[in-house]
Lab assay of single mutants.
Amino acid sequence: MTFKLIINGKTLKGETTTEAVDAATAEKVFKQYANDNGLDGEWTYDDATKTFTITE
């Protein structure tokens, strides 16, 4: 399955995708991506669209 991450950061904005077997796996990938890029914010997830959002 394809999951999307929408980034609404103070300095970084955009989106990225990952292929994962489930939402929990995708969340780990996206949280590592956010950590690697210095993002810290509030996370939301929409199961209907398989989309995570981080807002700083």
Rank of each mutant, 00 (worst) to 15 (best):
Q32G: 07
D36C: 07
T53N: 04
K4D: 03
A24G: 09
I54N: 01
L12N: 10
G38C: 09
E42C: 08
F52S: 00
E15Q: 13
K10D: 08
G9V: 12
E19F: 12
G14Q: 13
A24E: 10
A23C: 08
A48P: 09
D22F: 03
M1D: 13
A24L: 12
I7D: 01
M1H: 14
D22N: 09
N37G: 04
T2Q: 13
A48Q: 11
T18H: 07
N35G: 07
Q32L: 08
G9W: 07
D40C: 12
N35M: 15
A26E: 00
L12F: 14
L12H: 13
T44H: 10
G41P: 02
T53F: 12
K13Q: 12
A48I: 14
T49N: 11
K50L: 09
N8L: 13
Y45E: 01
K10P: 08
K31A: 06
E27I: 11
E27C: 09
T49D: 06
Y33R: 02
V21A: 12
T11R: 10
D47E: 14
F30L: 04
T17Y: 14
T2A: 06
T16C: 10
I6M: 06
A23R: 15
E56Q: 09
V29W: 14
K13F: 10
L12Y: 13
K50Y: 10
T25A: 14
D36S: 09
E56I: 14
E15F: 11
E42S: 09
E56G: 06
T55M: 06
K10Y: 07
K10F: 12
G41C: 03
T16H: 14
K13G: 07
E15K: 05
D40R: 15
L5P: 00
L12D: 07
E19Y: 14
G14V: 14
N8Y: 14
I54Y: 03
N35T: 14
A48H: 13
A48W: 09
N37D: 03
E27Y: 15
Y33S: 02
T18K: 04
I6R: 06
T25I: 08
T51H: 03
K10I: 13
N37C: 12
A34D: 00
G9F: 15
A34Y: 03
N35H: 13
I6T: 05
T49G: 04
Y33H: 04
T17W: 15
G38E: 06
E19I: 15
D40K: 14
A48V: 14
F52N: 00
D46G: 02
T2G: 05
I54K: 01
K50I: 03
K28D: 06
G9S: 12
K50H: 12
W43R: 00
N8E: 11
K31E: 04
N37E: 07
G38L: 08
I54D: 00
Y45F: 06
N8G: 05
E15R: 05
E27H: 11
A34G: 04
N35L: 12
G41M: 03
G9K: 07
D46A: 04
L5H: 00
F52A: 01
A23F: 13
K28M: 14
A20G: 04
D36I: 09
N35I: 14
G14Y: 14
N8T: 08
E42T: 10
T11N: 12
E42K: 13
D46Y: 04
A23V: 12
M1G: 13
A26M: 01
T53R: 05
F52C: 00
A23N: 05
D22H: 04
T55C: 05
K50V: 04
K28S: 11
D22R: 03
T2Y: 11
Q32S: 08
K13M: 10
A26G: 02
A34H: 01
W43E: 00
Y33W: 15
D47F: 08
T16N: 05
K50G: 06
G41A: 03
F30Y: 02
A20M: 03
N8F: 12
T25S: 14
Q32C: 05
G41S: 02
T11K: 14
L39Q: 03
I54H: 02
